[in-house]
Design a protein around this nucleic acid. Structure first.
Length: 522
RNA sequence: GCGGGCGUAAUUCAGUGGUAGAAUGCCACCUUCCCAAGGUGGACGUCGCCGGUUCGAAUCCGGUCGCCCGCUCCA
């Protein structure tokens, strides 16, 4: 498995992804997509949109504002749940949910070790001494910041009392340090709407795009006359004060989501949930992600979000391990009911058959655009030995690849070759993202394109235009070279559009049958 | 935020007190009829930032910012 650093440096070197504000020392947790990165990510978002919206009769799109009425987040539960009181360790800086610290202490290594020491023979005889001994030996490793470890003179009595009563100990589960009083953590970013700070409205930057869909449910249903079941898709930025951003673009505080809220009849929700899980799981391999690098993970009951009846994650084997790419949750009727209650509006669907108003159930496939982009990059990365040299290539699916075709003149000192290559390139550009390059020998040009994942190169040579001095006629044919196999075929310029279409559709074998091979010189 | 590691050219890295090096890459020209070919020339770093010690700091010290690994959160 390739390490993330290799991907990071390739991304920078070739213009996929740069660190935000790099000239000022960088901003943690923010990344900028360069010329190739923006193409890559846009391709992924467009394919997602095409497959989930355009190719389906039961889906429509939406693009809601990032800032919304503050009440949205009260209704959604984010103000309550996203602001769970947290407590921080003053010594090691770790954060814990305040309601989890007591159990975390009991399960901690140092707590277990103290208990064990007390249960031993010397512990039975003189508990206080046993604790002191432990504190000055194992305790130094396990809980260096525990008061009794830091200071041998600290009376062990309070510690013993706490252990005896199994009372929660207000100490860091990890290092034994002093925990701060619980304080509300602000996992949502906010800003002030209005030019004068004193009178401005404090609004949140949405922590998920989903709520923009829920609050527009009735608008969309009425304006599109959609019947249940139907879904609303949205791609857009969301913001969260992650406690620990990191792993390149995997966890950032500003990120882009690709979300669907699929509204269905109560009672059919479980079936739709499973259908979306299958649908979304099959989507990634469709564009080249290797199946062995994908898996599903069912959320345990105690890790389900407050709104969820069932959640299944699609995980990808990133360089740092299996991590979430997309989550598919059954959000039940929770959100619509909440918004109905908080807004006082009726957010229901009228069932024509039964003549009743119902609150639809909602299935939410929620993917990360940045995470998907990273997964496609990692999965495409390939190193191999070619003639004793390392060849690095990104084996992107043609629909994913930022550049589809590179047009390269075999010789740069022949004006007619160069001119023809330019003309061929300009023609291809109208349909496919294409580039022209003549600044190096052909071998180097191929390697450059391999490294950014261009699936096909088109090469113009002297035969294409004919060598009039030698009395040779032009054949008006070019070489098409496939990235992964490095195989080459010779194709008439006139047939290039149809041949390239075939190639982009993954029918290289057919193109090969129809066109003669262009041998590679050894 | 704490512990550990780290920050020198676009990239990967060498350089532990005497005003910066290599390889690859990049640019120009020449050469070259298909896989990082060859030749000639070239650009490139106020050594993350700020301060201190010193006659002198990439090198030592302090602070700060950022990155990686661990602890937590999720898309």
């Amino acid at each position: 498995m390739i390490d993330l650093d290799t991907i990071v440096s390739l991304c920078k070197r070739r213009g996929f992804i740069f660190q935000s504000s790099e000239i000022y020392g960088g901003l943690g947790s923010a990344w900028d997509y360069g010329p190739l990165g923006v193409e890559l990510k846009r391709n992924i978002k467009n394919l997602w949109w095409r497959d989930n919206v355009h190719l389906r009769d039961d889906m429509v799109g939406l693009d809601a504002a990032i800032t919304m009425h503050p009440k949205v987040w009260e209704a959604s539960g984010h103000v309550g749940h996203f602001a769970d009181p947290f407590t921080g360790c003053g010594d090691c800086g770790r954060y814990y949910r305040a309601d989890h610290t007591a159990s975390a202490v009991v399960e901690s290594k140092w707590y277990q070790a103290v208990k064990k020491a007390l249960a031993g023979p010397s512990g039975q005889k003189d508990p206080e001494k046993a604790v002191c001994n432990w504190a000055q030996s194992d305790g130094k490793k396990l809980a260096p910041n525990l008061p009794w470890v830091k200071n041998p003179n600290e009376p062990a009595g309070p510690l013993l009392d706490l252990l005896a009563k199994s009372a929660p100990l207000h100490a860091c589960p990890s290092c034994g340090g002093r925990l701060s009083d619980p304080r509300p953590a602000n996992l949502m970013l906010h800003t002030l709407l209005g030019p004068v700070e004193q009178t401005a409205l404090k609004v949140y930057l949405r922590p998920e795009t989903a709520q923009g869909i829920f609050v527009n449910f009735v608008n969309v249903a009425q304006s599109t006359r959609k019947k249940l079941p139907f879904g609303i898709a949205q791609v857009g930025k969301a913001f969260r004060n992650e406690i620990t951003p990191g792993n390149f673009t995997f966890r950032t505080r500003e990120f882009e989501q690709m979300e669907i809220e699929y509204f269905c009849m109560p009672g059919t929700d479980e079936e739709w949930h499973q259908r979306w899980i299958d649908e979304r799981f099959a989507w990634y391999p469709k564009y080249g992600i290797r199946k062995e690098n994908l898996r599903q993970r069912e959320h345990a009951k105690d890790e389900l979000a407050h709104y969820a009846k069932r959640t299944v994650d699609i995980e990808y084997l990133f360089p740092m391990g299996w991590s979430e790419l997309e989550g598919i949750a059954n959000r039940t009727d929770y959100d619509l009911k909440q918004h109905a209650q908080f807004s006082g509006q009726r957010l229901t669907y009228f069932d024509e058959e039964k003549k009743v108003h119902i609150v639809p159930y909602v299935i939410e496939p929620s993917g990360g655009a940045d995470r998907a982009t990273l997964a496609f990059l990692v999965d495409a990365y390939t190193e191999e030995q070619v003639r004793g040299e390392k060849r690095v290539s990104l084996r992107f699916h043609p629909e994913i690849a930022p550049i589809k075709i590179a047009v390269l003149p075999l010789l740069r000192n022949r004006p007619d070759v160069v001119e023809t290559a330019h003309r061929v390139c300009d023609d291809l550009r109208r349909t496919w993202m294409s580039v022209y390059d003549d600044t190096a020998a052909i071998g180097r040009l191929y390697r450059r394109q391999d490294e950014v994942g261009t699936p096909f190169c088109v090469t113009v040579d002297v035969q294409t235009v004919g060598d009039k001095e030698k009395g040779e006629t032009d054949d008006q044919k070019v070489t098409v070279r496939e990235r992964d196999s490095m195989e080459q075929i010779r194709v008439p310029i006139a047939d290039l559009p149809s041949c390239m279409r075939e190639c982009m559709d993954g029918r290289w074998a057919e193109a090969k049958r129809r066109h003669p091979a262009q041998p590679v010189k050894e």
